[in-house]
Simulated assay, not measured.
Amino acid sequence: MQSLDYRVVEQAIEWMKNHRTVWMCTVLSTFGSSPREPGSLMVACADGEHLGSLSGGCVEEDFLDRLVTGEYDLPTVIVRYGSPGEGAGNARIHLPCGGILEVLVERMPFSPENLEHLEQIRNALSGEKALTRCVRLTDGKNWLDEAEPNGSRVIREHGSEQIRIRVGPVARLVLAGYSTVAEACASFAINLGYQVVLCDPREEVTRNISLPAGVEFRSLLPSLFIASEGVCTSSTAVIAVTHDPRIDDLAMMAAVKTPASYIGVMGSVRTSEARSERLRASGGLSAAEIARIHMPIGLNLGSKTPSEIALAIMADIVRVRRGRDLAEL
């Protein structure tokens, strides 16, 4: 399954290969409710043909109307929706609940350099390593730098004429084994835009399961899938919530050898202490490897039901993905 942003970049490449100018639009920030997070993409051509979205409905309509009439002829412009004022930088659209949406619009005519830049973005979205896309507002010059795997997708320092946008592989959740908690985690993750894969070789457990639409099921030992080349990237979370050490422990042993940014396993404090000792003594894991594992998994919300436990787990995964410390909550 390819993410919408990946398909947006692929479309931009196709148009540019046909020597068409493209306008690449990136959501920079949102204040109030918005269906698209910072870093989300939309691409358009001068005739209004487009792929992707910025917010939905009237926002896209306003942008495309302005584009077709030739309003966006500068290399870069930041458009603010919901902000008072006139001109290219302040579109006359009122968002629900007084929200404000900022969008970076880049005019990218055909050139070998622009085509290469888009291809590098596509490679980052489909690869294993996140990159930082840098855009200079004064002249539209763009380039790619190394990036941290987690944290804010868009960084714009006050007074700076440079915007930094992290691009990388689509977020993926690997569920090591089936349980009612795993099923609830899958539902949350799908709604959060994750690719979700559930692995479980136990036919007696999975025979009659009904997983949420969009979840990929693999009938094999999770540790084998996790250890496969290219499965776990810096945008991958691996969790084990079965209470079966044969599934959970092996999954943890495989996950700590990968770049996965979140690794967690369910269990009480006492169970987690016993697991740590098993992983050290029998699994041969180092103290640093064991420290990568979130156990007990999830935020301490006092959760009781499978859905509440899943909520606590997915909230912690989002926290780590966004680069937030527990002390900031």
Rank of each mutant, 00 (worst) to 15 (best):
I263R: 09
N150M: 10
Y194C: 11
V77D: 07
L131K: 15
E86L: 12
M266P: 01
C97A: 14
L221Y: 14
V265I: 12
G284F: 13
I263P: 13
G193N: 07
N114H: 14
L67G: 05
L64F: 06
R92L: 14
D73A: 13
R280F: 14
G283L: 09
V27D: 04
T26Q: 01
S268G: 00
L224H: 11
A281Q: 09
S126P: 11
N208F: 15
G32K: 07
G193V: 08
G151M: 10
G151Y: 08
E203Y: 12
L221Q: 07
G302T: 06
L175W: 11
I226K: 09
G32A: 08
V59I: 07
T242Q: 02
H158V: 13
G70T: 10
G39L: 03
Q162R: 10
L326H: 03
G264F: 06
P96E: 04
A130S: 15
S29W: 12
G98C: 12
S210G: 05
V68T: 11
Q195T: 12
G159T: 06
M253E: 14
E49G: 08
V215S: 06
T236E: 03
E106V: 12
A327H: 02
S29D: 12
V205F: 13
G283K: 04
H94I: 15
L125D: 04
T76V: 09
M108H: 00
V68H: 03
V318T: 05
R7K: 15
D139R: 02
L173A: 05
A147G: 03
M266S: 09
E204W: 11
P109M: 03
P75C: 04
L51S: 10
R36P: 08
S55N: 06
A251P: 00
S307G: 09
E10F: 06
A186H: 01
L95R: 08
